[in-house]
């Protein structure tokens, strides 16, 4: 056992990278659920974004363009869900599950010719002086731009939901769609926009895995992160900052447990392997002891005639 082999600075830097895909997907889903829609297709939208972004980055040579296309692809896939649930009044759980299955298959098909190819690298930002600072530099100023975007997005969503009129309307639709409708808000239109936003976020989260975290394309490479994002939204009581905390905690414990293993700590590996899930759930359950609860209209379909 040699704990000195673990470098805490590199550890924190890499946990931020490990957490970002989860964070992007989860804050997107948070907005969707705040509008009263439960979209279980996060995994499918992520993996579609992963291959769409990867393919674009490889073909164009620009990772940034890859992220844009990944967002578009994720949103495009979520359109399918929006049509099914908002116009055809299909069951949201079933539609979401089928979206995941569809996304996994579609991505495998799209990705057939991209296996084993290396994508262009996303440069980490480099701010003179700041990035070269010891400790603070690598943790705060040495990442790729998407990572900062994820944090900024979380802040923006929090501010919008809490302080803005748009956020109030979105929450109203999610809490009581009949009342929102009676007030003259276009429930279906607002929900569709939320679904598209969630799709775009999930798509970007997927692309972060295929372009930065791994970086390469293999089938099924999201490996369940979409499902963890869904669970995270619930455990975080639909609060953006708790989603961020949960994502970092999950990413952090994942990286720490691998570090402990490599350092030869005498804790049985099985406990280490389950620790990310366990610790994240425990912390967020303790935090959610206050009275926050799910949006009242979550998962309920809306039709103006009812």
């Amino acid at each position: 056992m040699d704990l000195s082999a673990i470098n805490p600075v590199l550890l924190i830097a890499s946990l931020m990278v490990a957490a970002t895909p989860l964070l992007l997907a989860a804050v997107g889903e948070l907005v969707v659920e705040k509008s009263g829609v439960l979209n279980l297709g996060v995994e499918g939208m992520m993996i579609t974004g992963a291959i769409a972004g990867f393919a674009t980055a490889v073909e164009s040579g620009s990772p940034l363009l890859g992220f844009v296309v990944a967002a578009i692809a994720g949103a495009a896939l979520s359109t399918l869900f929006a049509i099914l649930t908002q116009f055809a009044q299909a069951n949201q759980v079933a539609s979401g599950l089928s979206l995941t299955l569809f996304g996994l298959g579609l991505s495998a098909l799209m990705g057939q010719s991209y296996v084993g190819i290396k994508p262009p690298q996303m440069q980490d930002i480099h701010i003179p002086v700041l990035s070269d600072l010891p400790v603070v530099g690598p943790i705060l100023f040495g990442h790729d731009i998407i990572l900062y975007f994820g944090i900024a997005l979380t802040a923006a969503i929090w501010a919008v939901l809490k302080y803005s009129r748009v956020g109030l309307i979105l929450r109203a639709v999610g809490e009581n769609h009949d009342a929102a409708h009676a007030l003259g808000y276009k429930v279906v239109r607002i929900r569709i926009l939320a679904i598209l936003f969630g799709g775009a976020c999930a798509g970007m989260g997927g692309a972060y895995i295929s372009l930065i975290r791994v970086p390469q394309w293999t089938e099924g490479m999201t490996a369940g992160i979409g499902w963890i994002a869904l669970a995270l939204v619930v455990f975080a009581s639909w609060k953006p900052w708790r989603v961020l905390l949960g994502a970092y905690l999950f990413g952090g414990v994942t990286v720490v447990q691998l570090n402990l293993q490599a350092a030869g700590v005498a804790i049985p590996v099985e406990y280490l392997a389950m620790s990310p899930y366990l610790i994240t759930i425990v912390v967020l359950v303790i935090l959610s002891a206050d009275k926050s609860s799910a949006p009242a209209a979550l998962g309920r379909n809306f039709h103006a005639s009812r």
Partner: peptide
């Protein structure tokens, strides 16, 4: 030695490799 407890999970394998390199 790091045990990944999976045959195939690119993200986890990448993390494991990064951790080993960092150490």
């Amino acid at each position: 030695i790091v045990w990944a407890f999976t045959w195939f999970d690119p993200a986890k394998e990448a993390d494991a490799a990064k951790v080993l390199i960092e150490q």
